[in-house]
Write a protein that binds this DNA or RNA. Sequence first.
DNA 1: TTGACTGGTAAGCAATTGCTTACGTATAAT
DNA 2: ATTATACGTAAGCAATTGCTTACCAGTCAA
Lengths: 117, 117
Amino acid sequence: MPNRNKSSQNAVADVFTAIAHPVRREILDHLRADDATVTHLASQFDMSRPAVSQHLAILLEVGLVSREAQGRTNRYRLEPEKLEEVDVWMRHYRRFWNKKLDALDTFLKKMDTNDET
Amino acid sequence: MPNRNKSSQNAVADVFTAIAHPVRREILDHLRADDATVTHLASQFDMSRPAVSQHLAILLEVGLVSREAQGRTNRYRLEPEKLEEVDVWMRHYRRFWNKKLDALDTFLKKMDTNDET
DNA sequence: TTGACTGGTAAGCAATTGCTTACGTATAAT
DNA sequence: ATTATACGTAAGCAATTGCTTACCAGTCAA
């Protein structure tokens, strides 16, 4: 089979690849507690500051964090809404392992229906 | 900063990396409908059969699918319980984007409490 | 037993990832 | 003005990924 034409995919990372790396998940876990600067985050890892900065760039790219300049520091803030994409995909599987969550699903659907005025 | 001693990590793939690849998610989506053989799965992708086989090997390694020999064919079956690990991690974030799911969480916790004893 | 079919795995490879150090720029302190 | 601090980003590199083709083993049909 010959190589396919890749049609110039610009290879923008998606949420699934973003959370695939354990360090990036840990970063998100840290930011769940509070916003933080790169140097502060880097102090929590056995890794150089640029390395953490690069991980943050990926999280930034997919929209899982936001960056706000404050003087000469940069505050990174958790933006967890993008994780809903993962949740949506998982929704199809949840019933397989948890009947209670299935019950919750039904419960939520009912709430949705009631919301539609 | 010098390179760290990697202490011989055997680099077994985890669930997060397994579902990071879009093809592997599609494979799982296919298996959600029904068990399938490699060749059948490969026919659904623009990719050689060995490539799909290698993806299945990863899914097998992390336990997201199981393999059952049937004559000269191999049936792959979805084993979705391992996705719970992802769900558990996501549980901490869900409240951020969905208050209703938060309500469901409370609901589930109450059910859990009632179940004890 | 021969031949066709299913399928895992090895070898090889280009591309990507994940780190490092080095550097440049902007803000703050003295 | 000079110096120190915080930070992003580039360059370079080893390791990994994700495909390919080639091969070999097991099963079924004739």
